[in-house]
Nucleic acid binder design. Structure first.
Lengths: 248, 248
DNA sequence: CGTTTGGTTGAAATGTGTCAAACTTTGTGG
DNA sequence: CCACAAAGTTTGACACATTTCAACCAAACG
């Protein structure tokens, strides 16, 4: 049988570990969760707005995104999801989904029935805390995105997104060296940042000409990290990465 | 001694009740929380980005907002808070605040020490669930705002905001009839929606001329609810109002 | 090796921002 | 209770970031 994920370790455990300190017993309880694993193709909906799921989806490998579509048919990507994320954890407490979820690259995902997660939370309050904390970090990322989309020019938005993705992927152990894979297109960058593909393209050119980053067909090369951070006004505080391990 | 809030009942209980079903014992435990009440003037910071609060703030009366300021000094308002909201509940689990919080009208707020909230959550898992659920609804609102800011024109954004505020305030028992008070300025509307005050003004004029709404110095009059909803593509699903009372 | 997907570019249109001034209401101190 | 200041709203002219439309190009893929 295949390993649960390319790295061989359970990405969910890794994620919870990064957000909280769990005991071996707790970690064991998480890995013991009955999980139905599926491999999905790129550009496939996993769940849709208005669904009432009875299970949550755990990202094991690949890239996915949450999104909404306006009445005029414009798509807004709300978040990118990487290994370890539980993109629809909200469904555990909110019956109706208010956004859709789709793969953007081939993905391996695990489905866990709500009842199992609820039992786990009942039994292990610290796991509840870790999951809750995870949703609070997600909300912090939403706030940062709102600020970007609402108040920063295209140039900064794109720089900011690249910084965020690299920091998140590094924290998840998905990236080591610099030229790294981020499986999205200029179109998806636009949909995430409230921009047109065309304008993303032009702005990418500008960033490239200024020697900050190159992004081409999913290959991201950061030439000047400091410059990119500055261009994107990127301050990783909102990702709440190290800070919280010490929390009660 | 003054009542805790104008309505006389504890807005926090009302809020938790709207999100969950609590027993009398649980309700009693919430009202028994030691809370330090303060009256604040308008336009005053309550907590600031980078603070490490040891308490949470409960809105008892008035309007407040969460916000961030970009490097170029532009403000993005992330959320409006009304009675019953706990705008910085995140600080219970995330050490460092990633946004500031300020009053926009005179406010009465209550401060509760984290330790008391944590004890309460330990003792009453269903209260944990209710609070968690509240943060998930907040996140759902962020997602909707991102969609508005990223993909809807100014006209729709403003219409949408008015719809949302009225529905929320009605759910909180703060509004009955139509001409109602919403204590914010055109400037604050702009900061919330990623627009300029000037452009908000012009768009407001347009909405007024089309007979949908009038907004003047905090007095909101909705002339055509259906038309306004349509203009703002407003669908209240994301507020998760009734749906969840039936939840486990 | 043609077809598809994603990227690149130009010209023109437009929504929103900027700057600057005037107007109106509200609140306040004399 | 007036006069004045302060805060919020309104308007005009102009600038600019971003969109739209339309085409072309380049890589990836079966």
């Amino acid at each position: 049988m295949d390993a649960i994920s390319p790295s061989g370790i359970n990405p969910l455990i890794r994620k919870l570990d990064s957000v909280s300190i769990l005991s071996d017993e707790e970690r064991g309880a998480v890995s013991g969760l009955p999980m139905h694993i599926r491999d999905l193709k790129a550009d496939q909906d996993i769940v849709r707005e208005r669904d009432r799921p009875s299970q949550c989806c755990v990202m094991l490998d690949g890239f996915a995104c949450s999104y909404k579509v306006t009445a005029e048919g414009k798509r807004q990507i709300l978040a990118f999801h990487i290994a370890g994320d539980v993109p629809d954890l909200q469904s555990l407490h909110l019956k109706v989904l208010d956004n859709s979820l789709a793969t953007i690259s081939p993905c391996r995902v695990g489905f866990i029935q709500h009842e199992h997660l609820l039992h786990l939370c009942e039994r292990y309050p610290r796991i509840t805390g870790a999951l809750w904390r995870g949703t609070l970090v997600d909300a912090a990322v939403f706030r940062e995105w709102m600020t970007s989309i609402g108040r920063r020019p295209a140039y900064s938005r794109i720089a900011h997104l690249f910084c965020e993705m690299v920091v998140r992927m590094r924290a998840a152990g998905l990236v080591r060296e610099c030229p790294c894979q981020i499986a999205f297109t200029q179109n998806e960058i636009g949909d995430a940042l409230g921009l047109t593909t065309v304008h993303v393209n032009r702005t990418l050119k500008q960033l490239r000409e200024e020697g900050l980053v190159t992004f081409n067909r999913g290959v991201l090369t950061i030439h000047e990290w400091e410059g990119l951070k500055e261009a994107g006004e990127f301050d990783p505080t909102y990702l709440h990465l190290e800070t919280n391990r010490a929390a009660a």
